[in-house]
Simulated scan of single mutants.
Amino acid sequence: MVFKAVVMAGGKGTRLRPITYSIPKPIIPVAGKACMSYLLDSFYRAGINDVIVTTGYKFEALIKSIIETKNSDQSILFSVEKEPAGTAGSIKLISNFIDDTFVVGSGDILSDFDIKDIINFHKKNNAKITIVLTEVSDPSQFGIVELKNNKITKFLEKPSESETFSHIANTGIYVIEPEILSYIKTVPYDFARDLFPRLLRKNIEIYGYVGKGIWLDTGRPNDLIRANQIMVNKYGKEYNDELIKGKNIIETSSKFDSCQIYNSYIGNSIKIDRDVKIKSSAIYDFVNIEKNVEIENSILMPNVTVRENSKIKNSVIMRDCVIGQDSEIVDSIISPELELKGKSRIYNVSLASKIIEDDI
């Protein structure tokens, strides 16, 4: 049987601003790959080659990125929404392209579940709809469920502390039969707020599958940093050299003199001077790091320059920035194309460059 997959990738990623002012959340890099590429790869491993991507915000950049990086024999159709249709509404708009069981995933969520096993579970139970679940420590940001005998008996979106009855959360990945689309009557329409409660009221059984693999909502900058660390740990190579230790993904062929690297992603065409320390970070293409710089738990996007004797910790530095010498940046986000003078001290702030009105 040939399945189709749908990737929802139309959101603005408001919690990640100012990062998402310049790049849509689904294609923010995680350990060298666009976030949604991990989901596309999981579909590909399950034998799903026909994918529809629903998008809206900064769709040109998203389409270009996905076309350039997708698996060669994976066919992708893009549905561009002029106005947000909601998660379920975006699927309704493309219903003419769906004629059999299909899988839905969120492009801005980091995941690499075994999709084939999820589909087998769905088919084994003759389910009309299956929600993939995971356990979370803070349920307030997610839809939570009550699960009995693999069936969802209760659903609540983003509960308050007093409303919390479970730590089992909706991952935004679903297996659905086409007939379920008939319950989506209007646009915009949301899976969690509208469709699932309606199905439960009509006694339509919703099955729940507890996912096996990595799942992380990269909704905040700290989550994005953690996402890079998780994927480096899973897919990196073990090093135990004098200066390079732990799990690392090192793309560049450059050799670094007296540079310490630990549990990090290092991209292509990187220049690193002597006595540099990089720990639990992601350093992307064409970055230039001068001598005696320390980078920890941070992300440096392409074409960043860090002058000598600077320290960057728990921060995201966007593309084409220059960090002046003897600077210190902690718990902060630096927007693209900013140049900080030497001896700058940036703590717990987001520095934004120009913002295009249409992007807000």
Rank of each mutant, 00 (worst) to 15 (best):
G172T: 02
G172Q: 08
G172D: 02
I173A: 08
Y174E: 05
Y174C: 06
Y174I: 02
Y174W: 06
Y174R: 06
V175L: 05
V175P: 00
V175H: 00
I176V: 12
P178R: 10
P178K: 02
E179L: 14
L181T: 03
S182R: 15
Y183T: 03
I184G: 08
I184F: 11
I184A: 12
I184P: 03
I184L: 12
I184S: 09
K185Y: 06
K185W: 03
K185C: 06
K185P: 04
T186W: 06
T186D: 08
T186K: 15
T186Q: 07
V187W: 08
Y189A: 11
Y189I: 06
D190H: 15
F191K: 07
F191G: 01
F191A: 01
F191M: 09
A192C: 12
A192K: 12
A192M: 09
D194E: 08
D194Y: 02
L195C: 04
L195Y: 10
P197G: 07
P197T: 09
R198Y: 09
L199M: 04
L199Y: 02
L199G: 01
L199R: 07
L200W: 00
R201K: 12
R201V: 15
K202F: 07
N203L: 07
N203Q: 10
N203P: 02
I204E: 05
I204Y: 03
I204Q: 03
E205V: 13
E205Y: 11
E205W: 09
I206A: 02
Y207T: 00
Y207F: 14
Y207D: 05
Y209N: 02
V210Y: 02
V210N: 01
V210M: 11
G211W: 04
K212R: 14
K212L: 11
K212M: 09
G213L: 06
D217S: 13
G219H: 06
G219C: 10
R220W: 13
R220G: 09
P221M: 07
P221H: 08
N222Y: 15
N222R: 12
D223C: 02
D223H: 06
D223V: 04
I225T: 05
I225W: 00
I225Y: 00
R226S: 12
A227D: 07
A227L: 06
A227M: 13
N228C: 05
Q229Y: 11
M231K: 13
V232D: 00
N233W: 12
N233V: 14
N233A: 15
K234C: 08
K234W: 11
K234R: 14
K234T: 08
K234D: 04
K234F: 13
G236N: 05
G236E: 08
K237M: 15
K237R: 14
E238L: 14
Y239D: 05
Y239G: 02
Y239S: 07
N240F: 04
D241N: 13
D241F: 05
D241E: 14
E242Q: 12
L243H: 01
L243N: 10
L243M: 13
L243K: 08
I244L: 07
I244E: 06
I244K: 00
K245Q: 13
G246R: 01
K247W: 13
N248I: 03
